[in-house]
Amino acid sequence: MFPELKNKIVLVIGSSQGIGKAVVETFLNSLSVVIAADITYDCDKLQTIDKRYFQIHLDISRETEVSELSQQLIENKMVPDILVDVAGISTMDFLVNSQTSDFEKTFQVNTRGTYFAMKYFTKAMIDHNKKGRIIVIASQAGKNGYRGMSAYVASKHAVLGLIKTAAIETAPNQILINAVCPGIIETEMKQRERVEGGALRGMSAEAVRQEDISQVPLKRTGTPQDVANVVLFLASPLSSYMTGQAINVTGGMTMH
């Protein structure tokens, strides 16, 4: 789709399902070289899937693992031109009943993990004089509040603060840092949230799904590909005058 992305090295963190899987497939279709990192993979060294596709295990919440992956890519002359951080988790409970451990776990992955990825891979890009792109999958929950999701909402608000600050700091290096804020996207995580959130509210998962649709002006929920398309735009030359932005992909549900 964008010839400029051919042979660009793209690291996708959180790549095994949902939005991350769609992002991987989209960049492979663009003839990029894709490194897919995910906690579910069992290979500690880069595993070649084919000549343009590699997989590796990564727990983004562990700083040592992020640092070691950065060093491994440097040693293999595979410093990313583009980083896409999709990794994220959610927990469901009302604030007064919530567990502190769930709050901390959510921040460890969503916020600390994003911080680690941005810290180490931005440094690698700068050290190797790469005018790169960093794209973080945040959420419309980084702009709004949602019942039963205090930890997730707070973590995504923090992520947007990180990308704004980092975008200012890396602008002199021509490293553009932006976030994508998906709305209601049909993923495995969303399906689980409907079950757990519905139980909190005395609703079936199907009733929650219908409520979801009713809140979207376009009258449909999103697909992982809807999000991957915007990621591709942010990685492309078409977004060369954009940094520090948080772009909604919500079907009109969030407009700010």
Results as ranks from 00 to 15, higher is better:
S150D: 02
N110Q: 02
Y241W: 05
V180H: 10
N173H: 13
T250C: 06
V230I: 14
I184Q: 08
R192T: 13
V136N: 04
S204E: 07
L160G: 13
I134N: 00
A171C: 12
K6I: 14
I35V: 15
M118C: 11
V10M: 04
S139H: 07
Q245M: 07
P3F: 08
V249P: 05
G148A: 05
G222D: 04
L162F: 13
Q140Y: 08
I9A: 06
S98L: 00
H57S: 11
K77G: 05
D93A: 15
Y152S: 02
S90R: 01
K105I: 07
P172I: 01
G183Q: 05
T165Y: 00
S204Y: 03
F116W: 07
G14K: 12
I126M: 05
F2Q: 10
S214R: 06
A205I: 15
E4Y: 05
T187A: 00
M253R: 10
I89N: 00
V109T: 15
G202R: 07
A207S: 14
T221F: 04
A124W: 00
F94T: 09
S240K: 13
E196Y: 04
A205G: 14
Q55H: 09
K164N: 11
F121M: 04
V249G: 01
Q72A: 12
S155D: 01
D127H: 00
T106N: 10
G222T: 11
T221V: 15
S214T: 01
V66F: 09
S30V: 09
I213N: 06
A151L: 13
I9H: 05
V231Y: 03
L69E: 06
L218W: 10
P172L: 00
I74Y: 01
I82Q: 04
L200P: 08
M92H: 05
G251S: 09
I49L: 14
R209K: 14
F27P: 08
G142C: 04
I185V: 14
P217G: 12
P182F: 07
V109H: 02
S98R: 06
I177R: 03
A87S: 09
Q17N: 12
I184G: 05
M203Q: 15
Q174F: 14
S70T: 06
A199F: 02
A235G: 15
I82S: 05
P237Y: 11
A138C: 13
N229S: 15
V208G: 13
A167Q: 06
E63S: 12
G145N: 10
G198S: 09
P224M: 00
A166T: 12
V79Q: 12
G148V: 09
A179K: 02
A205H: 08
E211L: 15
V109L: 05
F121T: 02
L238R: 11
F94H: 10
C43R: 07
D38A: 07
D50I: 09
K143M: 10
M118Q: 03
L58M: 03
V33Y: 08
N76V: 09
R194A: 07
I247D: 15
G142Y: 02
D38C: 04
K45S: 11
T48W: 08
A22L: 12
H57W: 05
F27M: 13
S61W: 01
L83A: 11
E188R: 08
T243R: 05
T122V: 11
I19Y: 15
